[in-house]
Design a protein around this nucleic acid. Sequence first.
DNA 1: GCAAAAGTGTTGAGGATACACCCATGG
DNA 2: CCATGGGTGTATCCTCAACACTTTTGC
Lengths: 235, 235
Amino acid sequence: MHKYSKQTRHLLAVDCVVFGFDGETLKILLIQRAFQPEKGNWSLMGGFVEANEGLDEASTRILKQLTGLDGVYLEQLHTYGDTNRDPIERTVSTAYFALIDINKYETQLSNDYHAEWFPLTAAPKLIFDHAEMVEAAKRRIRYKAALHPILFELLPKKFTIPQLQTLYESVFNTTIDKRNFSKRVLATGLVIKLAEKDKAGSKRGAYYYQLNMDNYYAKFQAFLNFIPNPDTLLL
Amino acid sequence: MHKYSKQTRHLLAVDCVVFGFDGETLKILLIQRAFQPEKGNWSLMGGFVEANEGLDEASTRILKQLTGLDGVYLEQLHTYGDTNRDPIERTVSTAYFALIDINKYETQLSNDYHAEWFPLTAAPKLIFDHAEMVEAAKRRIRYKAALHPILFELLPKKFTIPQLQTLYESVFNTTIDKRNFSKRVLATGLVIKLAEKDKAGSKRGAYYYQLNMDNYYAKFQAFLNFIPNPDTLLL
DNA sequence: GCAAAAGTGTTGAGGATACACCCATGG
DNA sequence: CCATGGGTGTATCCTCAACACTTTTGC
């Protein structure tokens, strides 16, 4: 029995903007929508919220269902409530964004599911207001990554400084002096140098690093300084 | 006729955390809930979202209905979707926060409406998860105000530098050297000195300033630097 | 041996902090 | 005349940006 019986009830959805990094460019994961309207058109990972699940739960479930992804960094972004954003029926949608290590799931995603990666700069037209969500997600990760070490979520557990730099450069669409970048990163105390080298990128090889978890949680909330001249960036 | 007829529909609410500054301390506006459950207990300004209104519209409407406030700074904060956050029936709520000049509405609020201001540090127990929303709003305005000039929304059109400093000090619960604070503020080019003085705070009087709207929108997105040592703040 | 990427130090400029005294005026 | 808050300048430090050469090794 409903106690708030006079109130209107609404459709509630979640949509996830999934970011991945392949070592070159920042990408987003899209699927072709499975039902009408806009069936077959490119869409974020989305679905309706069920009666007995929270929003975070719903986004986790939907991401798992559509892509098999589990245990990834997932954060609420914004809730979109325009009455006409879905032409069929008024639907309020809470957008989330996820950051994942693209290589960890690449084959799984293309084989078992029908999600595809697109470079951020070359994504197809998206349904409804999903392009707006992607824009907001991009702004949010730029904003957050300029001050907090979230981009490590996009890399494998073991990564090299040049890989990290390429990631920052592609997220912020800029170039950074490698001497200064390396100094900044090492100065945070967030990474630990390993003995092993990655020989894939060069003949000499680059040392692997991994996150220093002790410092990670402690420093996460502090304002770091990963990007030179953040003032001049359009955030 | 519903095209998504198989999907569950949900109750949707908005709740507004309204901040005000009286020259001394940061305060929030609360009302006593008008209906069951928790009737008579202290609550944020909240209400259900109707069928034909967007979320921003709903928050504006509800704020107006409950307090008479109109045209104030209002920003979406976060959406709370735990299934049991309202004991009567599952309700998803999108929280907003507002920043207003407390003096502008003080008498109106206490006479025409039954909202009351409470110092942030001495607020009563709140219904449901409203205390969590207030905490999140507090973190958000600290975070945002450390980098963007949003706190001017809490002051009258004409304000003095000492007033502004007291505001920053109370939001960040710290003390700032007045020479450095004044330099920082003036260096942004965000304020214009007026000829008139405010004689209320001292015998000598303090010059009034007002926002320089030309620079305001241009500089809003840049990372400013209003707070010394933001690293050390718990944000 | 050479091309291609990794790794590393120093210097200079500018911005941030620390700090103390005079000013205006109402009582 | 004095107490109270308002207003201002400077020296120092330190952080950040600019900048170039050596190392390694697969081919």
